[in-house]
């Protein structure tokens, strides 16, 4: 009766205001990405040829996805931590005494919802960027053709799912929302800053393995240290290792 548990977890997610806040934030993020793409394109059009050569691409997912990742992670973390905070986890476990089933249901729901959300946001940004850039050349055009941008959109959207599963697993380990989110924030935003103080050989690798640097490497972007398969494997590791630790403790600890 795995279906019952999955349906219940979906119902729980749906019935919390924070889930809808995240959805609203996602819509806002898409709109902000679209506006930024239009602005940077207009700036590009008004610039000299020399300045145009140094422009960044108009792909705003680079800015939007990392920010949205933390917002979505706050909901994903609370899937466990929210229940531990009040003791609700005990009530839940009286309904679903099989911990394997409960853990699987939570993982499935968070993984699928976060993946879908990430893809929707990522493809919306992709579409808006294409529309804003039109037939302008590189560097403002992030991709040589629309088709060439699809893998990149899939990759950057999937990071949302990775971060959410990481937060879910970590939440099962730490059992505190604040602790989980601080850890996620450090991984997302602080690690590259610290890596800058390390010797170049080390910091290059830290940077290559950094969570938010995996999406471009998945599609073989410029300066990739990891192969696409390697980058996907590292991304999977970011989700699977915390989930494994979470499961190990969740299956053994008293509730």
């Amino acid at each position: 009766m795995m279906g019952d548990s999955v349906a219940a977890e979906l119902l729980k997610l749906r019935s919390l205001r924070s889930s809808w806040v995240v959805l609203a934030a996602s819509v806002l993020a898409i709109a902000a990405g679209g506006v930024l793409a239009v602005l940077i394109t207009a700036d590009f059009d008004g610039s000299s040829l020399e300045r145009r050569a140094t422009f960044d691409s108009a792909d705003m997912s680079v800015v939007i996805i990392p920010l949205l990742a933390l917002v979505t992670a706050s909901v994903a973390a609370a899937v466990f931590t929210g229940e531990y905070g009040s003791g609700l986890i005990r009530t839940t476990l009286t309904g679903v005494p099989s911990r394997r089933k409960l853990f699987a249901a939570k993982t499935l729901v968070v993984g699928l919802v976060a993946f879908a959300l990430g893809q929707v946001v990522s493809f919306a940004l992709f579409g808006l960027t294409l529309a804003a850039v039109g037939d302008r050349p590189a560097p403002i055009a992030p991709w040589t053709s629309a088709a060439a941008g699809v893998p990149s959109a899939v990759a950057s959207g999937s990071i949302i799912a990775v971060v959410c599963l990481l937060a879910l697993g970590l939440g099962a380990v730490v059992r505190s929302t604040a602790g989980t989110l601080v850890t996620v924030a450090v991984l997302l935003y602080v690690v590259p800053g610290l890596a800058a103080f390390l010797p170049a050989a080390v910091s290059d690798w830290v940077f290559a393995l950094w969570l938010l640097n995996l999406a471009p490497q998945m599609v073989g972007g410029d300066g990739s240290l990891l192969s696409p398969v390697g980058a996907v494997a590292v991304a999977v590791g970011y989700a699977v290792v915390p989930l494994g630790c979470g499961w190990f403790l969740f299956s053994r600890r008293d509730a």
């Binding site: 219940a8 119902l11 009040s86």
Partner: peptide
């Protein structure tokens, strides 16, 4: 006290019932 304050009484029970 083992409830999520953000859910309604009905929704709290529906989530548990659904399992």
């Amino acid at each position: 006290g083992a409830v999520h304050g953000g859910r309604s009484a009905r929704m709290h029970l529906r989530c548990l019932a659904r399992t």
